[in-house]
Design a protein around this nucleic acid. Structure first.
Lengths: 256, 256
DNA sequence: ATGAATTTGTCCGTATGTATA
DNA sequence: CTATACATACGGACAAATTCA
């Protein structure tokens, strides 16, 4: 009898996935609503619980549902859209694109909290990007908007060059301000890179996304006035709830 | 005896995942090299094959390995980096950022092929974005660079407004050229949005990425000279192999 | 071109661990 | 503390795709 229902050609877990997605998109399962327990769904379709888990796992990675151990599986809330107005961009000021700037765009309650700080980090990519030998100062922060985790940032600096900075950077972070006031530094963009990746275990815990969920990964280097690479930064932005939109001014005539 | 090795706290599949990743990053498993078959790995660790599959599944989604049914699991090639020079951007010309432009940046052999074309599409997002009632003309293309799938694009237009366009757009696509020559149209950006998402089944097949793998999703609307929304486009870009880097001119002094 | 061997994909049943309510 | 619900793991079987003699 095993595999008897495979006749349709389409794998069972994908049939389950499609049907659950249909119920969500049709509103039969509303955002925030709890799905039936896995054993119940397994009984409904007459399949093994692993098959249900396979289907739910895909829905979770795609951001359609959130799974919480011991609690249940819930339909995800709709995506929050973050809009950027292009005329204000691009700027080479290093703090453009910082969280203060983002606050203007999102126009939402937003807090940046210190997650971790150390002056003895050895992240491989950061070391390579900054071209320094010694240990690095590392500041990890988390930005929440509307109470929800939004993006996670890491900033790396040469620890030897900025003694005592760890003590200055407190709960109210103001890293760029501290660099300016204490070391007379104004940083500019040297480069930024952007790609899509999947959430690591750490990203997932921090951003409250499913492991393997989509995140935008933005990396970059800031330089000082002498073009010395001074700060490496890496930001992970939730892909399931954040979308950057750039609106162009369409009133002007084509330029060329 | 079942579950006896769980005492370590860390799940077995994650231990396997970490160890395989270590071997890859240490170069013990070189890019392109085939991993041992799943049953062999299961025997090596003394675990069930499903546990191995769980580990390999995560590595595949993160882009570290490629799994091919009937063939084997292979270490992925390193990521291709696409560089944009910022002074050339942004432009509101609709064909900036088109594949011809990308060719300049990638400086690689690159071909765009027609995947599908129809004049009776009803994609929900496209219909909403274009604010038209009738069926849509839809052109799907695939861009390969260096022989590898690179990005997949979809273009939507009001079918009623562009009769006969399907016949014009052939294997050599030149969609923007056809719009200009046959309808006297010059399109400009109205908006673009960017987010990270996971590959759907169709994306995965087209782009040769694992289902659930990361892709950058770029959507947008182009308008004509009367600011009428004329073209909706949606592009999926492989996140596992493509990274956009923007280099800024660091010779100039800070502006403000 | 065929068919067997290899390798991954799907699915079943069962058991136990861990987090939450 | 107990019950519930998801997380991990075992063993077995067959299907589907690929490879290769």
């Amino acid at each position: 009898m095993t595999g008897a229902r495979k006749r349709a050609g389409e794998p069972v877990y994908r049939q389950v996935e499609s049907e659950l997605l249909r119920r969500i998109q049709a509103g039969e399962l509303a955002p925030g609503q709890k799905l039936p327990p896995e054993p119940e769904l397994a009984a409904e379709w007459g399949v093994n619980r692993l098959t249900i888990r396979h289907a739910i796992g895909e829905l979770a990675r795609a951001g359609h549902v959130n799974v919480r151990q011991g609690s249940g599986t819930y339909v995800a809330e709709p995506q929050l859209v973050v809009e950027f107005d292009l005329p204000q961009l691009p700027s080479t000021d290093a703090d453009a694109g910082s969280t203060a700037t983002i606050a203007d765009y999102t126009r939402q309650d937003q807090t940046e909290t210190l997650v971790h700080i150390t002056d003895a980090d050895t992240d491989v990519r950061a070391v390579a990007a900054l071209e320094v030998a010694g240990p690095l100062l590392r500041v990890d922060t988390l930005v929440r908007a509307g109470g929800q985790p939004f993006l996670a940032s890491g900033y790396w600096l040469d620890a030897a060059r900025f003694p005592g900075l760890t003590a200055t950077v407190g709960e109210r972070i103001a890293l760029f301000q501290a660099l300016h006031e204490r070391f007379g530094l104004r940083l500019r963009h040297a480069w930024r890179s952007l790609t899509a990746t999947v959430a690591t275990r750490e990203d997932a815990a921090l951003l409250d996304v499913p492991p393997g969920g989509p995140v935008m990964l933005r990396e970059g280097i800031n330089v000082d006035d002498d073009n010395v690479p001074t700060m490496y930064l890496r930001r992970r932005i939730r892909g399931d709830r954040i979308r950057f939109t750039m609106r162009y001014d369409t009133t002007e005539t084509p330029s060329a």
